[in-house]
Design a protein around this nucleic acid. Structure first.
Length: 483
RNA sequence: GGCGGCGUCGCCAAGUGGUAAGGCAAAGGUCUGCAAAACCUUUAUUCACCGGUUCAAAUCCGGUCGCCGCCUCCA
C-alpha cells in the first residue's frame, strides 16, 4: 500500500509521489515570534513533526524546512511597547519557541531559516515579479497584482468578485486592486528597515516563504504545510508569488491541520481563549499532551479540555503500565519452559507494524494507529495476567513493536518507570500531604497488617484515599499513587 | 452573502459501498485480608433527521435541522 495524502489543492486524498524518488522536500510555516506559543501552535508543530518522522520511517530522505517570521507588525508593536529594538523581541520568542518545541519532543527540522536573514532572496523575487509584470512599485511599497495571476484563489477555491463583495477589505490608496497584497512595505520612521531598489523598507508577510522555500527546496517541491487558517490569504499568496515568478508549479501537496478548540470554538489570540504550551505543561506531562494531540486525526478539530487531557493521561498510563509489566516479567529471566506461544499475541505482535503502516499511509491516521496499539496492549496484558513465564520472548517482541510505533509518533519514549515517576511527582506537588507523611502512614499500616490489625490498616487506606492517594499492595511491598 | 467542514455509545474517537476499531466512564466476575492495577464478560440492530440510488449505505445523491471554520492578523 502506498501513502495517500489529503491535498487541500485538489480537495481529495491523492497517492503521494515525490518529485525525486526516495526523497521528500517539505516546507511548513512556522510562527511569528512575538509572544509565547499556545496549544494551537503545539498541535501544528506536533502534527508536522509526526508527518516528518513517518516519512523518514517510511524510508524517505526528507528535507524539512520550518521558518521563523522574525519581522512583522506585531513584533514591532511589542518592541515599541517595551521600548526595545524589534530583534530583542524576536530573539526572545525564538528562544521560547525552541524551548517549547524541545519540551514537546520535536525533532529538529533540517533548516530553520529566519526571514530577516533572507532579505536579499526576497528582493530578488520581488524584482523578478516586477519585471514580469506581476507586481508594481507604488510610493515605496510594492504590491502583487492579483488580477495578473489567473489561477489566484485556486487553493482556497474562491473568486475575486465574491471576495470583494465581502468588502471587509481596506482599499489601500496605493493599490490598483483592493485584493492586491504587499510584497514590500516602505518603512515608517522608527521602524526597522532594509535597503531595496524601492527604498528603505521591510518585506511583506508572504514573500519570505516563497523566497526561503525556493532557496532551500527549489522552485517546485513536494509538501507545503501549515494550519488551516493559513490557506487564505497566506498560502494563496505564496502560490501567486512563487508560480508567477518561476512559471512553474509551487508545492505539489498542501497539507493543513485542523484547529484546537475550546468549547467547540477555535482557540485564538483574538478571542483570548487560549492556553500557552507552558501553562499546559505545568499541569500535564508533555507526552500526555502529545498523545492527546495525536489521538484525533490531524485534520479534525480537537477539543481541548481538562477532561480530555485527563482521559489521554489515563490511556497513556495504561500503555506504560503494560510496558512496565513486560519489563518486570522479563527481569525474571529467560522463557521458563518451551511452552506454546499465545496465538492472539503472536498475531497482534506480528501485524502491528503492518497495521500501523496501513493506518499512517491513509493520510496519517494516528487515531487508528493508536487503536491498534491498544489492541496489542490488551493481548499482552492478558498473557501477563496469566503469568505465562513461557512467553517472555514474545512479550519482549511485543514491547519492541509498541516502542517502534512510539518512536514514529514521538510517544512511549520514556522508560515506564520514569514516566510513572514524572506523573507521580507532578501530582504529589499538589497534594495536601507530604510524601514523608505518606511514607510514615504506610509504615504504620505495614505494621498493622503484619499484626493482622486490618481495621487500622483500612483506616489508613481510607484516610489517604480521602486525600487522593491510592495505596498499592504487592508482594514487593506497598507503593502509592495519586488519583 | 460566498466558500469549506462537521453531526457515529454517557464522553473522546476510527470507520467513506459489504453489514459499527479503540480509549475513557459504568456494571458484574477473577485476583486481593480489603483495595489498586490487570484480565474476563456486558454496554450503539445503529451512525442528526427525511427521502432517493443500490442486492447491499454510517459511508453515494437530494432536502431539512444543528454546530463550526475561512472570507482581517492567526497554527
Amino acid at each position: 500500500m502506498t501513502l495517500r495524502v489529503y491535498n487541500t489543492l485538489s480537495g481529495t486524498k491523492e497517492e503521494f509521489t515525490p518529485l525525486v524518488p526516495g526523497k521528500v522536500s517539505m516546507y511548513v510555516c512556522g510562527v511569528t515570534v512575538y509572544d509565547h506559543c499556545h496549544i494551537g501552535h503545539a498541535r501544528a508543530n506536533v502534527v508536522f513533526d509526526m508527518i516528518y518522522r513517518y516519512l523518514c520511517h517510511a524510508g524517505y530522505e526528507v528535507t524539512y524546512v520550518r521558518n521563523y517570521t522574525d519581522v512583522d507588525d506585531k513584533i514591532i508593536n511589542r518592541a515599541n511597547q517595551e521600548g526595545v529594538p524589534f530583534n530583542v523581541i524576536s530573539e526572545r520568542f525564538i528562544a521560547e519557541f525552541d524551548r517549547d518545541m524541545a519540551a514537546l519532543g520535536l525533532a529538529l527540522p533540517t533548516h530553520q531559516p529566519k526571514a530577516t536573514e533572507h532579505i536579499a532572496e526576497m528582493t530578488a523575487v520581488i524584482s523578478r515579479l516586477i519585471e514580469k509584470g506581476y507586481a508594481y512599485a507604488a510610493d515605496g511599497d510594492v504590491y502583487f497584482c492579483v488580477e495578473e495571476f489567473a489561477p489566484y484563489l485556486k487553493l482556497s477555491k474562491r473568486n475575486l468578485d465574491e471576495m470583494q463583495a465581502g468588502a471587509r477589505i481596506e482599499v489601500g490608496e496605493k493599490k490598483r486592486h483592493p485584493m492586491d497584497f504587499a510584497l514590500w512595505k516602505g518603512s515608517k520612521p522608527g521602524e526597522p528597515f532594509w535597503e531595496s531598489p524601492w527604498g528603505k523598507g521591510r518585506p511583506g508577510w508572504h514573500i519570505e516563504c516563497s523566497a526561503m522555500s525556493m532557496k532551500y527546496l527549489g522552485e517546485t517541491f513536494d509538501i507545503h504545510g501549515g494550519g488551516k487558517d493559513l490557506v487564505f490569504p497566506h498560502h494563496e499568496n505564496e502560490i501567486a508569488q512563487s508560480e508567477a515568478a518561476n512559471g512553474k508549479p509551487f508545492a505539489h501537496y498542501w497539507i493543513h491541520n485542523g484547529f484546537v478548540n475550546i468549547n467547540a470554538e477555535k482557540m485564538s489570540k483574538s478571542l483570548g481563549n487560549f492556553f500557552t504550551i507552558k501553562e499546559v505543561l505545568e499541569k500535564y506531562d508533555a507526552e500526555v499532551l502529545r498523545f492527546f494531540l495525536l489521538s484525533a486525526h490531524y485534520r479534525s478539530p480537537i477539543d481541548f479540555s481538562d477532561q480530555n487531557l485527563r482521559e489521554a493521561e489515563t490511556g497513556l498510563e495504561r500503555i506504560y503500565t503494560t510496558l512496565a509489566g513486560i519489563d518486570e516479567e522479563l527481569a525474571k529471566g529467560e522463557d521458563s519452559t518451551a511452552g506454546e506461544a499465545d496465538h492472539e499475541l503472536v498475531g497482534k505482535t506480528a501485524t502491528l507494524a503492518d497495521r500501523f503502516r496501513e493506518a499512517m499511509d491513509d493520510d496519517f491516521n494516528t487515531a487508528q494507529a493508536l487503536g491498534f496499539v491498544f489492541d496489542l496492549v490488551r493481548s499482552a496484558n492478558r498473557v501477563l495476567a496469566e503469568g505465562r513465564g513461557d512467553n517472555r520472548a514474545l512479550l519482549a517482541e511485543a514491547r519492541d513493536r509498541i516502542r517502534e510505533v512510539g518512536t514514529v509518533l514521538g510517544i512511549f519514549t520514556s522508560g515506564p518507570r520514569a514516566f510513572a515517576e514524572r506523573l507521580k511527582s507532578r501530582k504529589a506537588a499538589e497534594l495536601p500531604i507530604s510524601p514523608e507523611e505518606i511514607g510514615r502512614l504506610i509504615e504504620e499500616r505495614i505494621a498493622a497488617r503484619a499484626a493482622r490489625d486490618f481495621r487500622r490498616a483500612d483506616e489508613i487506606r481510607d484516610t489517604l484515599a480521602e486525600q487522593g492517594i491510592m495505596l498499592l499492595d504487592s508482594p514487593q511491598g506497598t507503593t502509592w499513587k495519586v488519583k
